[in-house]
Amino acid sequence: MNQKYMLPLAGVFLLFLLAYAGVEGAGLQWFFGIVIPYLAVIAFIWGFVNRVMGWASSAVPFRIPTTCGQQKSLPWIKQNCIDNPDKASGVFIRMLLEIFLFRSLFRNTKAAFNRDENNRLTYSWEIFLWVGALAFHYGFLVVLIRHLRFFMEPVPASLAFLEYVDGIVQIGLPGIFLSGLVLLAAALFLLARRIFDVKVSYISLAADYFPLFLIIGIAATGIAMRYFTKVDITGVKEFTMGLVTFHPVIPPGVGGLFYAHVLMVSVLFAYFPVSKLMHAGGIFLSPTRNMANNTRAKRHVNPWNYAVDVHTYEQYEDHFRDKMIEAGLPVDKEE
């Protein structure tokens, strides 16, 4: 058994049991339902802002974008304005494509070496990580937006429309939301990849498995409540509206499963800023992507640029003057 994923898995189980038993056994609804969520949200906001401010406070001494296409040079050579932008507009589009479509990941290839008479290295397009990642993030996003209905009264029409689209596939009652299933399936795919792809497994840390298990746990408990245990939805709304209006209430008839869901979400929120999940903020600040490739056209200023010792021409000529004169090279001083 690999403790890199067994421990995080056990940890998520423990969280589940903690909340479930804490509510069902010890009646700690107020703790898991009120104290923990508030603390988690505070930790999330404080941590997130802190992290981003920390990055932003670091200098950007050089303009070093990774260029992935033709530069702007001679007027008759067609520039790749997006992959090698020289203007803010191009950078903006490059960042949009990166953030919303994971453009760099879309390029992903898989290399293979075939030891035979040709000994060829081959590269094939590897789309599955991109598809999995996109499904995961968009599934999560829709789920998250859908959950806003618990924090708003009345529910805006745009949310209702999203729910309508998300529930377009109708099988039985209650109607199925695709987003939740996509999220769960994508998270399971990403987990399977981490465990069974030998290279990815080798580089993975406990910190890579933990958030996956946590999100799988959140999705699974959410799905269980909606489709199987049929949680008391009016009670839940009463609870969430209480939180968001700062008049927390503990509704009767909402069981341990719900509080397990809430605890796992809270842990995800609190864990977010101290983990790799911060890539969500970091991508905006990645200098290889968010800078224009125009360093030769427009000077970039390094805030900590300092003077350095150099070997001047005068020192050089002093050193070599005789040899230079003898070789007929021009000199500034004859002696």
């Binding site: 992290r51 920390g54 990055w55 932003a56 406070s57 670091s58 200098a59 950007v60 001494p61 070093i64 760099s104 990941l105 992903n108 290839t109 898989k110 290399a111 990580l129 990642a133 990849r193 792809d197 290279k199 990815v200 580089i203 993975s204 840390l205 890579d208 790799k276 911060m278 890539h279 970091g282 991508i283 600040l285 990645s286 200098p287 290889t288 900590w304």
Partner: peptide
Amino acid sequence: RLEKFRTFKVFMDICVRCGACADK
């Protein structure tokens, strides 16, 4: 260097170890 180079600081923090770079 974490203070002098945003690249360094951000790149230390945000890798998710997705493995896309592994065979590049």
